[in-house]
Each structure stands twice: as C-alpha cells, then as structure tokens.
C-alpha cells in the first residue's frame, strides 16, 4: 500500500482545543520517571519563574500523536499503521507549556517520500495558545516499513 502523494500539504486541524492540566503533566512526568519538581509542584514551578507547573520537553508529542492519528485514520492517505515506526522527532518551543495553557493545533503533512523500500511520512503540528501566540511546533517523521 503506497502513501498517496497528493496528500502533501494536507492539513488536519485538531477538532477541539487541548487544555494542559496539572494532572496530565504529572502523569506524563511519572511515565518518563522524571522527578523534577517543576512538573508536579506549583510552588517549585513558581519559584523557577513559571506561572504554574510546566510540562516536560517531550510532552507536546501528545498533540503531535493526536494530529498524526487523525491523518493516519484517513483511509485515502494509505498508511498501514501496523508497519509504522518512528523515524525522527523534533520540537521547537517558543516557551515551555504550563498548566492552564489552552492550545489549538493544526497538523500538516510536510513530507511524503520513498526510501529503500520504505515510505517516509512527515507530519508537522503547530500549537498556539488562546491568544494565537505560537507555543510549540512538533515534527515527526514516520517510517512505514516495506513488506
């Protein structure tokens, strides 16, 4: 099954905004075994100069995953999810995410190519806050492994 090249540039806006909560940040920090108190303790985060607890650097992958899932669920795109592995990943931050952020995001297909029997799909998710200010861009390249 080949990825449909006509889908380059296609956009998938998140159907609803994403609210960053203290509970979700704590859950994520615990899942990556990171005990840094700025993720779980509001007083520590404020002492470090933040308005509330901040999210670990890779937390925004949640938005990227959701956006890529929207794209992959599109049958016309032609991705066999059972053969997908993660190729590369990047984050560009205007600032760290913190509890209370309400983010709207759009995921765009920025790359489709074949390489050595595999197909490479690149998805970029841009997340802005409620005032339309950029917070983070996360880019993931997925490898759809050939048979």
């Amino acid at each position: 099954m080949a990825i449909n090249p006509d889908y380059l540039g296609r956009e998938y806006p998140a159907p609803e905004s994403y609210e960053v909560t203290r509970g979700k940040i704590r859950e994520f920090a615990e899942a990556v075994n990171d005990p840094n108190p700025v993720y779980t303790d509001t007083a520590s985060a404020k002492a470090a100069g933040y308005p509330d607890v901040i999210a670990p650097p890779t937390f925004p992958v949640i938005l990227g995953m959701a956006g890529s899932a929207q794209a992959i669920a599109d049958p016309e795109l032609g991705v066999d999810f059972s053969r997908v592995v993660h190729g590369d990943q990047s984050f560009h931050y205007s600032r760290p995410l913190h509890a209370g952020d309400v983010l709207s995001s759009v995921t765009r297909i920025t790359g489709i190519k074949s390489l050595g029997g595999n197909e490479l799909l690149t998805l970029e998710t841009v997340a802005d806050n409620a005032d339309g200010e950029h917070v983070v861009t996360t880019t993931m390249m997925l490898v759809v492994r050939g048979e």
């Binding site: 990171d34 993660h86 590369d88 560009h92």
Partner: peptide
C-alpha cells in the same frame, strides 16, 4: 524523554529548551 532528563538535569531548568531533535 530519558535523554531530555540528562539535558534538563544538567541545565537545572527544564524550561530552557528551545529546540530538541532526534533520529531513532
């Protein structure tokens, strides 16, 4: 995420990260 811990524990401020990219 584990690699990020090495970085953020070293800097002392997890909010310091401007760009972070890896290839698996």
């Amino acid at each position: 995420a584990e690699a990020a811990r090495v970085l953020t524990d070293w800097t002392g401020d997890p909010g310091c990260v401007v760009d972070y990219s890896v290839r698996f």
